[in-house]
Design a protein around this nucleic acid. Sequence first.
DNA 1: CGGGTTCGTGTATTTTTTACACTAGCCATA
DNA 2: TATGGCTAGTGTAAAAAATACACGAACCCG
Lengths: 254, 254
Amino acid sequence: MNTAFNENISVDCVIFGYDLKSLKVLLLERHLHKAGGKDLIFKDLTLPGNHIRNNEDLDTAAQRILFELTGLNDIYLEQFAVFSDPNRLDNPKDQQWLAAIGKDPQTRVITAGYFSLIPLEKYYLKQNGNDTMPDWYGKNPRWHQLDRIANMAFDHARILDSALQFLREKIMSKPVIFELLPEKFTASQIQNLYEVILGKTLDKRNFRKKLANLEFVVSLNEKQMGVAHTPARYYMFSRDVYERKKKEKFTLIT
Amino acid sequence: MNTAFNENISVDCVIFGYDLKSLKVLLLERHLHKAGGKDLIFKDLTLPGNHIRNNEDLDTAAQRILFELTGLNDIYLEQFAVFSDPNRLDNPKDQQWLAAIGKDPQTRVITAGYFSLIPLEKYYLKQNGNDTMPDWYGKNPRWHQLDRIANMAFDHARILDSALQFLREKIMSKPVIFELLPEKFTASQIQNLYEVILGKTLDKRNFRKKLANLEFVVSLNEKQMGVAHTPARYYMFSRDVYERKKKEKFTLIT
DNA sequence: CGGGTTCGTGTATTTTTTACACTAGCCATA
DNA sequence: TATGGCTAGTGTAAAAAATACACGAACCCG
């Protein structure tokens, strides 16, 4: 057992973020330069991902790789699927890029998809001119709005789709929604988040009734300040209470 | 790309079966013999599993491996988790066995767990004296009752646990239950199946009300014959109707 | 023909879900 | 300091879904 990279196994991370308005995903740039020269042949977008080391499990590798590429550290991260199509890297553009960076384009690679949810305002990404990254990968990590993404590398568009589907199902039964929200949030903010994830609108009064019934969402004696309208009450998620109550069925929406 | 085995990646299959009474799982025997001789040092139980080939995706590999080991062919098979603990093969018994069959016990192996559901009476397993299998693995595929399994190889007990948990969640939202039943089945049979999977009893009249509300469970004009009690009506699952209706939410139990 | 077994069914009560509209509070600005 | 623009916060009635519960009918066997 050693710390070398395993050329057959990689992880790719789909990091969703929410800025209290819309749903975003964290992507890097991949560049292909002319051999020797600096001329750019193409650039496109990738999910943060890389090969695992032989002494790591997949979860550890996902944490490490995400940190190395984006500076994000110690965040909720969960495997949601494995992508193992033998032809998943066979697109000519990808083959060309792999060859250019010195990999064998024939090598079989399966990748484990990880997904994560973070409150956008809480984290700072590495800056554009990240010195530790080579000039062909891992540049310019940025948040992209979900409905405005084009031109993704490899099979990453499919991985992203799959992650979104997984997220939609997951929020129906587990309290992962709170991973996307700041520690304290208003009822409207969490309702809007459900709406952008599910792509449909919800009834305000009914939503608040359900919210009020969840014992693990506790209402704080604190209100918004400085807003140009009635200030809203803040709520927070109590993991303690949830752990004690989680046998009960849990629905925030129907 | 070639057809060699990939020493880093395997699949293991958890095949659940239902004999209209209890829930079973399909296991093989693993033997360790004294070097050279025929003396048996130990034998224990394993899930059917093996390494993938470099030109297969995981789904294909799972189908192939299951067929080679048990003769089961073309059945519903779905990945449910990946097990990637770097120490998952480090138990001395397992290290000894790996060395004995000529593998490097140091090699890092991650495994994809697949699960399947089949109506027990429909399939015939390879017989004990299967000639195509070596004498240290893949012998004697048999159905084992879930609550009476001891002594499993590697981390297979954990994989099995994880599969059962997955099954319990899955039957709550997708019509996989029908994969465990014969084509035609009675209301009591499907209710009993839910009960053995979930480990709790359900109310007969309420269960049947819900069953009657599922348009994709169609009632046949056919009854049991030769039973020593009121003959029960048969039902069947219509995948056609399900596909057309599946946007609707689906619960058979609550 | 009697005993043993499983089948099949209805109703009343409680809980959950849905649909729906107006006043109150804060800021900005005129 | 009055007004306009904006979002917060709230209740009720009707419909749908979930629950609890018991007994006669049909068949085989001996």
